[in-house]
Amino acid sequence: MSLNLSLYTISSVLILDNEGKRLFAKYYKPTLPETNNTFSSSQFDTKEKQLKFESTLFSKINKINQDILIFENNLICYKQVNDIIIIFISPLSENESLVYSTLSNFNEALLILFDNSIDKLTLLEKYDLLCLCLDEIIDDGIIIEYDPATIVSRVTKPHSNQIDVNNLRNIDISEKGLFNALSFASKKLGERLQQGL
């Protein structure tokens, strides 16, 4: 059994929707040459192969909550949350518990970032957060950070949520929904009332 002595741990991260279509797919290519053979890179080197792998994998894991299994000589850890499946794939000899923890910490980080609602729609709406979050967890297959709170704190906020009170003119009202307007109004109102007291 060849143990992985390099830092490369995760060979790919997939997020599929409830029909098996990919929402996010990243196949990491380790840069150190000697690790290439433990990473079955040829298995995923073309998009066609990747898609085929994804569809067969999806049919195997959809709606079956097993968390972990071995598939085509890969260690697959996955989590089905609402209408999406998050999948981490790593070489067979990898530490199962390690990969799975990374996956569940990623899930937890997303929960915080997406305000407790991980579903397809939120995911696509806040795709920037998703990308940045994953980039803080894994770089080229190397696990960077592990603690969900630390990960989340590394992801910058998107703009639309910054409400500059002193600079009302700059708010682009057309980009806000009714709810935002309401919440902004109530916040403002609260402040005024407090000042009044």
């Binding site: 830092l7 915080i112 190397i142 603690d147 969900p148 630390t150 992801v155 906020k157």
Partner: peptide, 26 residues
């Protein structure tokens, strides 16, 4: 980036996660 917006989850951060040891060792 302190996300008070995301709730209290990030306000009490651990002081370190020692991940740098892992990377340095590798």
């Amino acid at each position: 980036e302190l996300h008070e917006y995301y709730g209290s989850a990030t306000s009490n951060l651990p002081s370190t996660s020692y991940m740098y040891q892992y990377h340095a060792l590798g």
